[in-house]
Design a protein around this nucleic acid. Structure first.
Length: 698
DNA sequence: TGATCCAGTTTTTTT
DNA sequence: AACTGGATCA
């Protein structure tokens, strides 16, 4: 187990008790160290697999770790708890639901359902959703939950009307979920903590069980996740965390890379190990990555190195428009295929999901097989969501959300009016809508669901799905319609059946409960298929942790990557830069950076300049179709003493300005040498020197 | 109640 | 460009 490891890797693997922090740069053999350490704990230190908890961020990572440990140690290692934070939370909730005042058959709602719940509540309360943006409110509720704040806690911080509405909606939202017998994603992390706080004995049991904890991607954990790991590891302190602050890319959902930087402070006597040798990429690629990331000012100094070859130059290509861009990628891929490169060694990466479409169209033209990884695309289809809503309702008849979704799907003549009546009655009786139904066409529907519930005792999942499709008339309706659209819907439903079949085969289980809980956490169909040989298309976020011989990154433009919404805030630009660092370091041999002069987005054409990240790569590492002067110039680093501009800057009241620390703001007052600027919360109004280089007009 | 049309809005990233 | 929600009409 120590073979083929470098010195630092060995130390990490051999470490037994006490806190351990591993700073693992991209491609430094992190997964190998983690799995070998697990194996070493079991084989050499006699730790029982049952006492080990390994937490990852994605299902993909969890599965990979499971595979590797099984290969190394055999099936016994399946007793190791390897899962994502969310599925681990779910496990605890399932085990102790009765202490959390839950019914055993709860279901999990996805972000769409949670948004529509917020919308309904706003409507009920007669708030105009134009003024009170539902998405914004949903996000604020979610952040509150991720900071472990109840509506009451949040109420203490209300300053204005908007805040108060958020609190009110939050309260109603929690009540709705409760009566729905549902949990949202945030609950999966929050409830275990509540459980531990209220039931010390349970916490002790859990601490005793998971004596050894490993957390992967520690730079991306947020407050709840931090507290959860801290509580469980509090007794034995055998916590090993692995991460890379330069790859922290989930700030938008509350991740805080300071958690990893504070680890030594948090856990006294922590052993710290640095893995800085990269085994993945060529020198050229690694140099490019280093030269980009060193532009981040808020950063712990570190430089990856490698013994690998220099390798090929990085290819940067500027295309005319997004079609041209996609065709360039297609041609490049065709060339690779001609050279005999296996398809699974090629990836196309982009900043936003919307960019996949053009690439897909180009690949379809040449029949190049591809998979879009990590897209919700399939589970977001109407027909699939309907089918899942049926399944959820069968499993949990209190699920009003699902009931409302399918009570008139396909059309049964149960309109808004009827639904409204049922809802009002249910609220009055403090019961579920399902239970409240007792007459009319809706009773037919209720009977139908009851018949499904009965049938579900006898049938396999796949058979149940077939029964639903037949008895509800969904299948009949689509067959009758007989359009390309309805054909494709039918195909999707068949595809869904192959997922349930696959599930039954793999898990040997036909339990509706297992299936529903798992699908709500694994929204990516690709994870169900063992796809052989396809090109991977995915966002830079989803590619973290993976590697490919040949990587194309498209959309390397200001406004796309870095994304438009990040341009105003330095901290957000730095997150985009880390994202770019992740993208570059995925490539082993060959890296193509591509962009377009013109791009049609949301129906209008935009002209984007070259991404600043291109300019940050040393020119001698790049081969390109673009003249030197067209490349963005790298920003000079400003030294102390050079912080002032020589020329006068003329600010007017009402001007929008940008400050490197405080972000964008509006000038409210101007004097001879100073300006007062109103910045966004929490900065407020600041008096600043007019000619300071950190301040500029927008 | 259900179908259709029109205006308005949207897309950053994910468990 | 594509999708949603609301309004209107049959």
């Amino acid at each position: 187990m120590l073979e083929n490891l470098n010195e630092n890797q060995k130390i990490a693997v051999e470490h037994k008790d006490g806190p351990l922090l591993i700073f693992a740069g991209a491609g430094s053999g992190k997964t190998k160290v983690l799995t070998n350490r697990v194996a070493y704990l079991i084989n050499n230190y006699g730790v029982s697999p049952y006492n080990i908890l390994a937490i990852t961020f994605t299902n993909k990572a969890a599965n990979e770790m499971k595979d590797r440990t099984v290969k190394m140690l055999g099936l016994d290692t399946l007793r190791i708890q390897i899962s994502t934070f969310h599925s681990f939370g779910l496990l605890l909730i399932k085990r102790y639901y009765y202490l959390l005042d839950l019914k055993p058959n709860f279901t999990i709602i996805d972000s769409d359902d949670s948004l529509s719940t917020v919308k309904k509540i706003l409507k009920d309360m007669n708030y105009d959703s134009k003024f009170y943006n539902p998405k914004n409110i949903r996000n604020r509720i979610s952040s509150a939950k991720n900071e472990l704040m109840t509506p009451d806690d949040l109420d203490k911080f209300t300053n204005n009307d908007m805040d108060e509405v958020v609190v009110k909606v939050y309260r109603a939202y929690e009540a709705k979920l409760k009566s729905n017998n549902s949990l949202d994603f945030d609950d999966l992390l929050m409830l275990p903590i509540k459980l531990f706080k209220e039931h010390k004995d349970v916490l002790e049991i859990v601490q005793e069980q998971y004596k050894y904890i490993l957390v992967d991607e520690y730079q991306d954990i947020n407050e709840v996740q931090y507290v959860l790991t801290k509580m469980i590891s509090a007794k034995y302190k055998n916590i090993c965390v692995v991460g890379d602050p330069d790859q922290s890319i989930y700030g938008f959902r509350g991740s805080n890379y300071k958690n990893i930087l504070n680890f030594e402070h948090d856990y006294k006597n922590a052993k710290v190990i640095l893995l800085e040798q990269n085994y993945r990429s060529t020198k050229t690629i690694l140099n490019a990555a280093n030269s980009v990331i060193k532009n981040n000012k808020n950063r712990k100094e570190k430089e990856l190195w490698t013994d690998n070859e220099d390798g090929n130059l990085i290819k940067y290509r500027r295309c005319e428009d997004q079609i041209d861009e996609a065709n360039f990628v297609r041609n490049g891929i065709n060339k690779l295929i001609d050279d005999g490169v296996p398809l699974n060694e090629i990836a196309v990466l982009y900043r936003t999901n919307a960019q996949s479409r053009n690439i897909e169209e180009a690949l379809l033209k040449d029949n190049i097989p591809y998979k879009v990884v990590g897209s919700f695309y399939f589970y977001n289809r109407k027909e699939i969501k309907d089918l899942i809503a049926y399944l959820k309702l069968i499993y949990n008849p209190s699920d009003d959300l699902s009931l409302e979704r399918v009570i008139n799907e396909p059309k049964r003549g149960i309109g808004l009016k009827t639904i409204e009546t049922i809802r009002t009655k249910a609220t009055a009786l403090n019961d579920s809508m399902f239970n409240t139904i007792e007459k009319g066409k809706e009773l037919e529907f209720k009977k139908l669901i009851l018949s499904f519930i009965e049938a579900s005792e006898e049938l396999s999942l796949t058979e149940l799905v077939d029964l639903i499709l037949d008895k509800t008339g969904i299948r009949h309706e689509l067959e009758l319609e007989d359009t390309i659209e309805s054909q494709s819907r039918l195909e999707n439903l068949e595809e869904f059946k192959s997922i349930t079949m696959n599930f039954e085969e793999e898990e040997g289980s036909v339990s509706l409960e297992e299936f529903l809980l798992q699908t709500s956490l694994v929204s990516d169909v690709e994870e169900y298929k063992n796809d052989p040989n396809r090109i991977s298309l995915m966002t830079v976020h989803s590619v973290k942790g993976l590697e490919f011989n040949h990587v194309f990154v498209v959309g390397m433009e200001e406004g796309i990557f870095p994304h438009m919404n990040s341009l105003m805030e330095n901290s957000e630009i730095e997150e985009e830069r880390r994202l770019c660092y992740v993208a570059i370091t995925r490539a082993k041999d060959d890296l193509h950076l591509v962009n377009a002069r013109r791009r049609t987005l949301f129906g209008n054409e935009q002209i984007n300049s070259v991404s600043r990240f291109i300019g940050e790569i040393s020119k001698d590492l790049i081969e390109t179709n673009v003249k030197d002067e067209e490349l963005p110039q790298q920003q000079e680093k400003i030294e102390i003493g050079e912080m002032f501009r020589e020329e006068e800057v003329d600010y007017q009241v009402g001007d929008f300005v940008y400050h490197e620390t405080f972000g964008t703001g509006k000038v409210v007052e101007v004097s001879n040498t100073l300006v007062s600027v109103a910045f966004k919360h929490p900065h407020g109004i600041k008096k600043l020197m007019k000619n300071h280089k950190k301040l500029s007009k927008v």
